[in-house]
């Protein structure tokens, strides 16, 4: 009887070690974040009121929470705020600059790192509802009054060139267009699915994203719910150390809000946790890359 049990336990241990998880780091070693927000006040697109607070407070929240969880963090804040910002600035969020920033951050990453791409702004699709035609309405370039665009395919290809894993969080209308369907049948021609890219979007492809007022300012409904989950308190101030004025040196950006109490936050926060924190209502439901795989965003050390 004892031999019978020991044989079973030995087999289980052999199987456990065959997975090789124990030979690699369990968690991400460093987080790189690019936080983009546009209010469109310098273009002919409808102004948005919640996107600048969305991007700045999300950057502030990740700065603070990674500090508290003791995870190395490099954050980049790319804002098109008001009408005075120069399109020549390297962190001005035109399409070309966004791709350059992705490449720049990719050069700083290694295979154990995580890149978080956060975007708060307009999104659109063409009338045929083809998932490959989703666009993000990024800032206008030069003297033009028209916005530039980032397509599903272009973003996916830019991110595919980076090492490590990538998380894309989009708070924009029709952003579900960016979430590739998981190929349950291993379809070889499935070109959109990239296992290193994990998407969480504020809406399904046919939905529009809403804004909501929080105290004295506006937020995207989706981003507001994510911030609430991350214990972001809209009172107080966080001095976020991020790249916002230069790609060479971090500066201190004063963000309205702070995280003062982590007691309700789990030791490990996954992308699925963020999706579960959102409330599907008012014709807006979050969408996440499905499949058997998910990613840990934050783990307390």
């Amino acid at each position: 009887m004892r031999k019978f049990t020991m044989a079973g336990i030995t087999v289980l241990l052999i199987l456990l070690f065959s997975g090789c998880e124990l030979s690699r780091p369990f968690y991400t070693t460093k987080i790189h974040g690019l936080f983009i927000g546009l209010d469109y006040q310098n273009s002919d697109v409808n102004d948005l009121h919640g996107t600048i607070p969305d991007a700045t407070e999300m950057a502030g929240a990740f700065h603070r929470i990674t500090e508290l969880y003791q995870i190395p963090f490099d954050g980049y804040l790319a804002l098109q705020e008001g009408s005075e910002v120069s399109p020549e600035h390297p962190l001005y969020p035109s399409a070309n600059n966004i791709f350059s920033l992705i490449e720049h951050i990719g050069n700083e990453m290694d295979n154990n790192d995580l890149f978080i791409f956060y975007y708060a702004g307009h999104g659109d699709i063409s009338d045929d509802q083809d998932a490959t035609t989703g666009i993000l309405a990024t800032a206008r370039d030069g003297e033009s009054s028209r916005y530039t665009t980032v397509t599903v395919t272009a973003l996916r290809e830019a991110l595919a060139a980076l090492p490590g894993n990538k998380v894309v969080i989009l708070d924009s209308c029709h952003s579900g267009a960016y979430v590739a369907e998981y190929p349950l049948d291993q379809v070889v021609e499935q070109t959109l699915y990239d296992p290193s890219q994990f998407y969480l979007t504020s809406t399904h492809i046919d939905e529009t994203a809403k804004e909501t007022s929080v105290g004295t300012h506006f937020h995207g409904k989706f981003s507001s719910e994510l911030l609430t989950y991350l214990e972001w308190d809209h009172e107080g101030t966080t001095q976020a150390s991020v790249y916002y004025d230069s790609l060479i040196e971090k500066g201190t950006y004063d963000v309205v809000g702070e995280i003062s109490d982590l007691s309700d936050l789990d030791e490990i926060i996954t992308l699925r946790d963020l999706e579960d924190a959102t409330d599907p209502q008012f014709g807006q439901e979050a969408l996440r890359t499905s499949g058997p795989r998910d990613i840990i965003l934050l783990n307390r050390r």
Binding site: T28, L114, T270, R272, P292, R293, D294, I295, L297
Partner: peptide
Amino acid sequence: PSLPSQGVYWV
């Protein structure tokens, strides 16, 4: 959930 590896796990 599976043991994580480089942040990725199976649900």
